[in-house]
């Protein structure tokens, strides 16, 4: 591991982390204005042009507000719980490729922080560590509503994690590899959703439950359980939970795009558009990498908008409906998908 490798790795990490952390305020703004648009009202529009500086105002508010810690809360676990939520959500992005390779000073840099050959397993593993943030937050708050919300939320997350894992087996069988870089390369002809539509549907629905977003957000529903597991959390700690939720949304959208929608493969038509505008696009040029990153960002943006759209459109599931849906409907559908995929591979349709 030479110094140059180390510098390139650090640069990639810094780039990805800064893009992620700066997407969160943009997402907050899109959510507030987008929800206002759906609900036929204006959103925040006073702070900057079109309310664009609203997230900045939110950050300043979070920094200066009082950070309460309840008297009987557990001294060690209460501050630790938001970190347990934030770190897995941030770290999972390391395995997701956002572009092909770049050639710089005859050094091939792949636009992915870590090309782990167990990419999908790594993401599932760290996704399952996110449950601790919720459990420990609920328990350490020493508050009935928190603990109820935490128990419900973690039971929901565990059940839908099973759906997530089971729905990933179909694409795994089709692609034959765990490594996300290989998977994106294999989608050069047709995007993955053409081969695995059922897996995409179950995966996307489970993604909503994993991120605790409506229609699965009973645990943190505002009208139901005060605020669920983050009732007792004040300014900066609440901001960490908030950030963790949006980061988790971004990661799951990026994973959906990578597995089912071609990852950084160019949106059809983009290449001819760029060539029409006069850019010379040849393999491993910088322009191609930029186009790939742009395609990736646009696709992730579409899915993030779908997340926000669904949130402000549907009502909430009741808890028993939610668990019945996960266990009695989605898991059999995911298993059926595995069976159908096996049949298709055996009969050489795929």
């Amino acid at each position: 591991m030479t110094l140059l490798d180390f510098t390139i790795l650090t640069a990639k990490v810094v780039l990805v982390m800064s893009v992620l952390l700066s997407t969160v305020p943009i997402l907050v703004w899109v959510e507030r204005r987008g929800s206002a648009f759906i609900q036929d009202r204006l959103g925040p529009n006073l702070v900057g042009p079109f309310g664009l500086l609203q997230p900045l105002a939110d950050v300043i508010k979070f920094l200066f507000k009082e950070d309460p810690i309840p008297l009987e809360a557990h001294r060690f676990l209460f501050p630790l719980a938001p970190l347990f939520s934030l770190i897995p959500a941030a770290v999972t992005f390391a395995a997701i490729p956002f572009g092909d390779t770049i050639e710089l000073w005859d050094h091939t840099i792949s636009l992915q922080i870590a090309d782990i050959n167990i990419g999908i397993l790594y993401i599932v593993a760290f996704g399952s560590l996110g449950i601790y943030g919720i459990l420990l937050a609920g328990w350490a708050s020493n508050n009935k509503y928190s603990i109820l919300g935490a128990l419900r939320s973690s039971a929901q997350m565990i059940s839908y994690e099973i759906v997530l894992g089971a729905s990933l087996i179909g694409p795994l069988m089709v692609y034959g590899t765990f490594s996300l870089k290989e998977i994106v390369h294999l989608q050069a002809g047709h995007w993955g959703v053409v081969f695995q539509p059922l897996a995409f549907i179950t995966f996307f629905i489970a993604a909503f439950a994993e991120c605790n977003r409506l229609p699965f957000d009973l645990p943190e529903g505002e009208a139901e359980l005060v605020a669920g597991f983050h009732t007792e959390y004040g300014s900066m700690k609440f901001a960490l939970f908030f950030m963790a939720e949006y980061l988790h949304m971004i990661t799951i959208s990026a994973l959906t795009v990578t597995l089912f929608f071609g990852g950084w493969q160019l949106i059809p038509g983009l290449m001819s558009l760029a060539q029409g505008l006069g850019f010379a696009v040849y393999p491993t040029s910088l322009i191609l990498s930029l186009l790939q990153m742009l395609s990736f960002s646009l696709k992730v943006g579409v899915f993030l908008w779908i997340f926000i759209w669904v949130r402000w459109t549907f009502p909430r599931f009741r808890y028993d409906q939610l668990m019945a849906f996960g266990w009695k409907i989605l898991i059999p559908v995911a298993l059926m998908n595995i069976f159908l995929t096996t049949l298709a591979i055996y009969l050489k349709w795929i």
Binding site: I116, N117, I118, L121, Y122, V124, A125, F126, S128, L129, I131, Y132, L135, L136, G138, W139, I147, A150, L151, S154, A155, I158, E161
Partner: peptide, 24 residues
């Protein structure tokens, strides 16, 4: 690498969650 991922998924992500659930 496979065992590392399995360790986190099963032990840290499922068994210990079961422990914490029971304690709660």
């Amino acid at each position: 690498p496979f065992l590392a991922a399995i360790q986190i998924i099963i032990y840290a992500g499922a068994i210990m969650v079961l422990f914490v659930f029971v304690m709660m």
